[in-house]
């Protein structure tokens, strides 16, 4: 005899990742990395609560082989990266045009 719960319908399971939503419209300030001064310490990557900074391969001839790249689709512009950067190479610029 089946247990009562075995006759229940399957519970709703959420499957759509939130990365389907571009969260950039929340942003009022845009972080911009000055790669000439960046030391690729990845502290900005470590402290990003939105996982909007990705470690990517640097272009040919850059002094480090990997650089942090900000994904402007998901950055909410909180500015933790600019505040925590040890060499202060990230500047917050005002967003002028909506996404």
């Amino acid at each position: 005899m089946p247990y009562p719960w075995q006759e229940l319908e399957e519970a709703p399971i959420a499957r759509v990742p939130t990365s389907e939503i571009k969260r950039s419209s929340w942003r009022t300030m845009r972080p911009v990395i000055d790669y000439d001064r960046c030391i690729s310490c990845m502290i900005c990557w470590k402290f990003c609560p939105d996982v909007a900074i990705r470690i990517e391969k640097a272009p040919e001839g850059h002094k480090y082989d990997e650089i942090p790249v900000i994904d402007y689709d998901y950055c909410k512009g909180c500015g933790i990266c600019a505040n925590e950067c040890p060499v202060k190479c990230i500047t917050m610029e005002r967003e002028e045009v909506g996404p």
């Binding site: 969260r23 990845m42 996982v51």
Partner: peptide
């Protein structure tokens, strides 16, 4: 390869509904 102090795997997906600068979202990520 640049050395990072934490592993690079991510289990938190971007685009979530936390406020900008949320400490709870960052805690979950770590």
């Amino acid at each position: 390869m640049v050395k990072t102090s934490l592993p690079r795997e991510e289990y938190l997906i971007s685009g979530h509904f936390a406020c900008p600068g949320c400490g709870a979202a960052l805690s979950m990520r770590i």
